[in-house]
Design a protein around this nucleic acid. Structure first.
Lengths: 207, 207
DNA sequence: TGATAATTTGGTCAATGTCCTAAGTTTTAA
DNA sequence: TTAAAACTTAGGACATTGACCAAATTATCA
């Protein structure tokens, strides 16, 4: 990936985040970058290609976070989620258009269904198991465990979508704290004493 | 509202649900209905007007459910949510385009922010309070209560969006049961013995 | 019947994503 | 140094979209 491509992706991400992917035209992006449309399509033949490149960057940065931070403690797990949330904010245009992208952008859909879903879900399940063996969490039944996994995924995917229902795209960072706190509280019914301490500490540090 | 308008709304809802609001053009809709585009715009000057009319029908049907079923027991509350989920499925195109509609359709946004959010949120809070006084639920702290309200709203709004990430628009009804069950389980940590019985009964009847 | 209102038609408009050709310019590598 | 490859510009074209409008047609009712 060369410098021009990087420049295009960077600026496209900014504009997409600001106005929404669907509402930034290729002509507008080209004008903003001071280049011709033909030049844009030289690097990204279609808009879908451009968006797919951005989604790849997002996936990679998420993968990096997952590999860097292991969920050895409940605090670590929550802290990892904080980084993931902040990263989601950087790529908010993707999360806010998820449904459309999955239905319209074949490459994103294939990649997401093929890789992301499986690895993330099994990764989350693995994290939860680990926290259970390390005695941060304790579940009464498997139902409880799969419930936590489900509501956790739903929240991670759509907190930004809900945030945008009450506030504009430009002010979403203000709500990050609220949703992170909510995520932490989600684990409280299943936390051991040790786990509760981690949750309290994590919430304290949010302020 | 006359017969032609009704006919247009009905067919538009079908097509929107099938393909997504953004991917059904006014020309396509007109052709499907055997009329000219200009005729469509006679009744609905803009596409936004058409979508707004559909959203009004959705809001009204939801309001009716809320007024018909009171949350005197946890079972009633869950049953009401079942009806709301089924109604959401009927209007899936709206729920699946929520973010876009709120950002693009000024009338929907104004209506939603002005009425729906407040009444629904306070209605939910009221239901939860009622279930607490009727001893179906018991919360250790206000944090727990607001957590339940938050995750409940998020799930109600976006279960369809998540469902469409794994399955196509045409097969979403299959996943309704799973998300309803998840909603019921969400209340288990805070349920009294009486509450647990209602949850079990509700889940049993889902099969 | 005749006038008014309701409805339908056909065509135009700008904007979008995509595609194309032809000509330059810059970079790379033999 | 020179030829080839990579990049950039310029201009245009296409079908599709939502929106808009004037005129023609039909329905309604005094």
């Amino acid at each position: 990936m060369n410098a021009t491509q990087q420049k295009i992706i960077k600026r496209a991400l900014d504009l997409f985040n600001l106005k929404g992917i669907e509402y930034v035209g290729m002509r507008e992006l080209a004008a903003d970058l001071g280049m011709r449309i033909g030049n844009l399509t030289y690097y990204f033949p279609t808009k879908d290609d451009l968006v797919f490149s951005i989604s790849q960057a997002y996936t990679e940065s998420n993968t990096q976070i997952h590999s860097e931070i292991l969920s050895n403690s409940l605090y670590d797990f929550l802290y990892k989620n904080r980084l993931l949330f902040e990263n989601g904010l950087k790529y908010q245009c993707l999360l806010l258009s998820m449904v459309h992208l999955m239905e319209q952008n074949a490459r994103i859909a294939a990649n997401y269904r093929g890789n992301v879903t499986q690895t993330r879900m099994s990764g989350l399940a693995h994290d939860i198991e680990l926290l259970e063996t390390n005695k941060y969490l304790k579940f009464g039944s498997d139902d409880d465990k799969s419930l936590i996994i489900s509501s956790n995924s739903l929240q991670s995917r759509f907190w930004l979508s809900e945030a945008v229902l009450t506030e504009s795209r430009q002010n979403l960072s203000r709500q990050l704290r609220h949703y992170l706190r909510m995520k932490a509280l989600l684990f409280r019914p299943y936390a051991t004493r040790k786990g509760l301490e981690d949750i309290e500490r994590f919430i304290r540090e949010l302020d």
